[in-house]
Design a protein around this nucleic acid. Structure first.
Lengths: 346, 346
DNA sequence: ACGTTGTACTACAACGTTGTAGAACCGCCC
DNA sequence: GGGCGGTTCTACAACGTTGTAGTACAACGT
């Protein structure tokens, strides 16, 4: 089938190792020899066998990306960014889905699979702070998200507290004072969850503006979904609370809130302004288009891949675990009266 | 680092090959011996090295999935389905993005990557019928979609013509008679594109109902996007055409049409009914929820993986190329007055 | 007693690559 | 002209697994 180094060596009239040296940019090869080898490679359409290389050098050029579900926009876009970043480093990405299930997440960490991946990027949702010690695995691992802090591994996350604060400040800046919050959290409330961190930013921003937090306006739902957002909004209205803005802790919730507002006959942003979190593509196309926190997904992906690559190439001495945070920004669109109309071109 | 077969063999007091035999379910191993080996495997947490296995047996247990873009919902959901199907066969999936670019698609077919993948699922968008001969590659390949027919490889597609016909019949059944069509196609119009096939179904259904096709109502846009759908709809209205339904050739266009209708002050489905194509998750959550053609994505994914696995395990004799089509169905929701309200639970 | 068949296991080579060690040659300096 | 450092190349072994070929023994029929 495919040509091997042996074939190339024969065709170029050199030893097999010289072919290897050319491929790996070993400096002590005469230009003339290099040319001959490259010509032979070209002519035979030779491609290195990654299994053999992996066996010999212990590296396969493949990393794993474990996310809850690809059909959730946020993770599809994260995967997109990771794949692009990895490609630049010449790495392939095997995508695994955990369904946000703790068991599946742990399985990723002890997988047979492991042996053919140089390292893993894990975005845990089911695991919690208590599982931190389980992250001490014998292969390169980088964590994404905010479920677990201070673990024994590198970790890329976002400025949850300050970006949530900035979102609230944005609402304050357009004159809103009664700002409801809609977020989600499962049963195991933790200090380090998206919910807790972003709520902290919300409270801090209100405090700094001298506005007391009305606990009736703080709504926790079960799921990070549109349905959850719509339901929470209907509750707020049914209970007769007064509010002129909603900060939803992710875009799915925010889109649900938009729908709920429409069903309830409230105008956006005139009656109620809405801010989401994640900057999912979809928000650009919503009616009205959605103001949101861009948590720096591109940067998160690039950083995570860079950290993983570093760990993979690390010799002996293990550097201590690092935590990186991406820069965030507020994307102002129609749902807060912002300039950005829905995108016209895709 | 990891234990090897050698270690297991030593621990169990057998030869290394016996360990291999146990792992590969070779029948002639005494139960007692098998037990001992399994115990040793368990105790040493042994995991086979896939690189070595790949080198020796020529198989890696990894397949490639090449799609245009993961951030397009349709492909994210397709990838989700493919990954789940592959997992059941014990295969990992490396996801590559082609950006719908012909060059990138061709690169996938001649990739260095190739060597560590047992086979590839390719969903071409940039390549066309003229490139059919380039699909004759020396590794297992299964095609997804409808860009290329009659190529030298297995092909999984959908009932484009009849399902589009069924969508139109659905609109006819609720009393609509002036049914606009919105679809997209790039510059290279082909007989086998989604556009051509689905338009054929549209025409056929109208003909069979004895309704002449009003060519003014057939709209072709550049991109399969929300923006394209909204723009096409505004054109229809601005030009003063009369219509009581829109069949959009994918859900993104349909969602854009919904938005356009709302902007234009037309009620859905009262004034205009809308049907999409793809059954993307998002359609369930739209306001109103979107009636659509479910092209059988799950089945497509399962079938494609099954075909690829067959090809991978094929010895010598190459079976002729096969084409499979998945079962479709019409999902009736609010945009045609259907029963299905937006989903409440995610 | 003999070969035959089936069972249970093992030794060895091979997959294609890269790290190690070293050979061969060059020019240079004292 | 002998030693030295730099350059260019090669032979060989090894990575961990599995296919091939083979050994050894038991059970069987004749």
């Amino acid at each position: 089938m495919g040509a091997t180094m042996q074939d190339v060596a024969l065709a170029a009239g050199v030893s097999i190792k010289t072919v290897s040296n050319v491929i790996n940019d070993y400096p002590y090869v005469r230009p003339a020899t290099r040319e001959r080898v490259l010509a032979a490679i070209d002519q035979l359409a030779y491609r290195p066998n990654l299994s053999a290389r992996g066996l010999r050098s212990g590296k396969t050029g493949i990393i794993g990306l474990a996310v809850p579900e690809l059909r959730e926009n946020y993770f599809a876009e994260l995967a997109d960014a990771v794949i692009r970043a990895a490609e630049k480093s010449g790495l392939g990405v095997v995508v695994e889905q955990t369904n946000g299930d703790r068991e599946s997440e742990l399985r990723v960490l002890s997988r047979a699979r492991t042996h053919y991946m140089d390292g893993i990027l894990l975005s845990p949702v089911g695991m919690g702070q208590a599982d931190a010690s389980l992250l001490d695995v014998p292969f390169p691992l980088v964590l994404l998200g905010e479920r677990i802090f201070g673990g024994p591994v590198d970790h890329v996350t976002m400025h949850n507290v300050s970006s949530a604060g900035a979102a609230v400040e944005h609402l304050l800046s357009i004159g809103r004072r009664r700002i409801a919050l809609v977020g989600a959290e499962g049963d195991d409330v933790s200090d380090a969850s998206s919910w807790s961190l972003r709520v902290r930013g919300y409270r801090r921003a209100l405090e700094q503006a001298g506005i007391p937090v009305d606990e009736h306006l703080v709504r926790r739902t079960e799921h990070w979904s549109r349905a959850g957002g719509a339901a929470a909004l209907h509750e707020l209205i049914d209970e007769g609370h007064d509010f002129d803005a909603v900060f939803a802790l992710n875009d799915a919730l925010a889109l649900g809130v938009l729908r709920g507002l429409q069903e309830a006959g409230r105008r956006v942003p005139d009656d109620v302004a809405v801010v989401g979190f994640d900057n999912v593509d979809e928000g650009q196309f919503a009616v009205p288009s959605l103001t949101t926190v861009d948590p720096g997904r591109e940067e998160i992906a690039r950083t995570a891949v860079a950290l993983l690559v570093e760990r993979i190439n690390e010799k002996g001495t293990k550097a201590p675990a690092r935590t990186m945070k991406a820069e965030f920004s507020i994307v102002s669109r129609e749902s807060t009266g912002g300039a950005d109309a829905p995108r016209v071109a895709q």
